[in-house]
Simulated scan of single mutants.
Amino acid sequence: MTAQNTTTAPAPEAPEERRGLRAALRWTAAVLVFAAAGAGTAYGITRADRTDVPGLSTEADGRWTYPALAKPTLPPGAALPFATDNKDGIHYAGLTQLLLPAPLGSTPDTGLKLEKDSAVTVDTLLEEYEGTARAKMKQGFTDNGLRQIAARGWTTPDGTRTRVYLLRFHASGLAVTFTGCGPDMNLSGVNRIETDDAWGRARGAQAAPDPTGVTVLEEPVPFGDEQVRAGCVQSGDIQAVILQSRKGGATAVPLHQAVILQQQLLG
């Protein structure tokens, strides 16, 4: 099976009122502040009103500068995810519109095997995992209704390589069956991965939106030539897998930033 089918799910009938428009208020003025790991500093991400979410400027804590993010365009009559008439959180926008854009100053990851409309095959995604885990994962995709995978990858000047994968399933109840992003994930070349304590401490110390569906992980010391960090965001019918790696060690803040922004795009 491949996941390069780009068929868009049929839009529901237009509601009598545009309740989906009211659901856009989910994008208003909620602020996340997370402590930068080991630095005693903090950074904030602000959700903007209506259509735009501002990109974040690079600060001394290691943030990257992203282009302004915009809410994806929906087919006519389609409801926003988690609107009153779309409680299952189905995303009707194209996956490419939902992908986190690359930060300014980065270069595209030419090693990522992209097809039309940023689609990738199941086999391409599975290259991120140990060979012994791939057959079981592939069968799970068949059994649990995987529809599409889209991806984007880049490398920043400091050598950090980022890959963002969005997996679209037929329903949210199927998306939650995905086991390839979490403490038990079996990434290629990674002996062990565990919860990122810096993320957990910061989330516990600061007022933040509902963290349901978000997991942030790090490869603990000692690691090999490079360290891997992972972010998991499950939102309705979509599961996001964000991987960052860097020789000598990957810093925490860029992954935290990417996770929060990707969560905002998914609503």
Rank of each mutant, 00 (worst) to 15 (best):
G44N: 02
I45Q: 15
I45P: 10
T46H: 07
R47H: 05
D49E: 10
D49F: 06
R50G: 07
T51A: 10
D52V: 14
D52K: 12
V53L: 13
V53G: 11
V53T: 14
P54D: 13
P54F: 04
G55Q: 06
G55T: 05
L56T: 15
L56M: 13
L56E: 12
S57P: 15
T58H: 11
D61A: 08
D61P: 00
G62T: 04
R63D: 10
R63L: 15
R63P: 07
T65A: 15
Y66W: 15
P67R: 14
P67D: 07
K71R: 15
P72A: 14
P72T: 07
P72Y: 13
T73Q: 12
P75T: 01
G77S: 01
G77A: 03
A78R: 12
L80M: 02
L80A: 02
P81R: 08
F82M: 09
F82P: 08
A83S: 15
T84R: 13
D85T: 13
G89A: 03
I90E: 06
I90Q: 10
Y92V: 07
A93S: 15
G94S: 05
G94T: 13
T96I: 01
Q97C: 00
L99H: 08
L99N: 04
L100V: 12
P101R: 02
A102R: 08
A102Q: 13
P103F: 05
L104N: 13
G105T: 02
G105A: 02
S106N: 01
S106V: 01
S106L: 03
D109A: 11
D109C: 11
T110G: 08
G111R: 10
G111N: 12
K113F: 02
L114G: 09
L114R: 06
K116Q: 14
K116Y: 06
K116D: 12
S118W: 03
A119L: 08
A119G: 09
V120Q: 07
V120R: 08
V120D: 09
T121H: 05
T121Q: 14
V122A: 11
D123R: 06
T124F: 04
L125I: 07
L125W: 10
L125T: 06
E127Y: 00
Y129R: 05
Y129W: 02
Y129S: 03
E130F: 00
E130G: 15
A135I: 01
K136A: 13
K138G: 06
